[in-house]
Amino acid sequence: MAKVLVVTSGKGGVGKTTSTAALGAALAQMGESVVVIDFDVGLRNLDLVMGAERRVVFDLINVVQGVAKLSQALIRDKRLENLWLLPASQTRDKDALTDEGIRGIIADLKTKFDWIICDSPAGIERGATLAMRYADEAVIVTNPEVSSVRDSDRIIGMLDSKTVRAEKGERVEKHVLITRYDSGRAARGEMLSIDDILEILATPLLGIIPESQDVLRASNVGSPVTLNNAASAPARAYIDAARRLMGETVTMMVPVERKGLMNRLLGRRAA
């Protein structure tokens, strides 16, 4: 049974695209067939984070408008044969994205893939509401920071009212994914703790992604962090989160950087 998962947040810059790429790749590494869709019309970036920016010919809007077939717009990942990307267009005409068009594309993708992961744009406008419209599940990406938690709360309200499932009286299964978490700062009371965030949002936790240089390093080279360095702390956290999406019970913990003895003595980060 195909699942439609939206990765959303309200606030920009919290790690939606990074998380979409990392979770998509992790699920594909587990043998699932996955398509990731970029809904950020005008400001596409998922192609860049996935390292497919030079292979984009057709995009989501071309398919909605019937200019291209779905099969022509889908880009297969170079590293994982069961991971695909449907890129956003760079046109400024956001109205080109229609509810009906998206419904058709998602229905079609559901016959071909196990997971359809929708990377939502920031904000609460059309792109964001369409990205969540047909979702069965939602990952709400949240930073331990007041404005991000507030926006997540707003998005949770929208998931409970503006999705097709909500309109039918069904539930969208929601999960909070906390990114850029620094356990040291949280322990010192400088950063909202996991418990604080979960209590405020009253939504179950999918995973805790530690703040790490590996995330930037992976996006620099155009590779999902779970593929670029699967042993790194953020990659292990994303892989655990993907296993939870698959229904496995995985003990919740914050993975830490593994440092070699010499690096530790010199106080350097592993390169």
Partner: peptide, 26 residues
């Protein structure tokens, strides 16, 4: 004990008050 920079409790309290208000408005 927690150090002088423990601003998280303030963040938590501000959020709880704000969100209680905003959820009411929705």
């Amino acid at each position: 004990l927690r150090g002088r920079n423990a601003s998280a409790p303030v963040a938590r309290e501000r959020l709880q008050i704000l969100l209680a208000h905003e959820r009411g408005l929705r």
